[in-house]
């Protein structure tokens, strides 16, 4: 499974896998293989869901172009 694969793609793959497993067309060996792959996808998706820290930033123009600084909403 490539690292660059999007969350959406991983989720789609997982859905397909589970659907296939549900269909009852797989033999035990294929079931185990699918289960292993599916478990990896679940893990990867959960990681992706939590991997980013909240960050709200604003662009500031400077001599060299742009830089970022935290943006706070003033109520």
């Amino acid at each position: 499974m490539p690292e660059k694969e999007s969350f959406e793609k991983s989720l789609e793959k997982l859905e397909d896998l589970v659907e296939k497993m549900e269909s009852g067309e797989l033999n035990l060996e294929e079931m185990i293989k699918s289960f292993e792959e599916g478990s990896k996808l679940v893990e990867r998706c959960s990681e992706k869901l939590n991997q980013v820290e909240q960050k709200i930033e604003k662009l500031i123009k400077n001599k060299d172009g742009f830089s970022e600084e935290p943006f706070i909403i003033d109520e």
């Binding site: 989720l11 497993m21 035990l28 998706c45 959960s46 869901l49």
Partner: peptide, 27 residues
């Protein structure tokens, strides 16, 4: 919505485990 995505992922995971369990029991 994060909670929605998490639930979706969880339900897929649960379904997969269930299907696997049923298959295993059958075998």
């Amino acid at each position: 919505e994060k909670s929605y995505v998490i639930n979706k992922l969880k339900s897929l995971d649960n379904l997969m485990n269930k299907v696997m369990m049923i298959h295993y029991n059958e075998k």
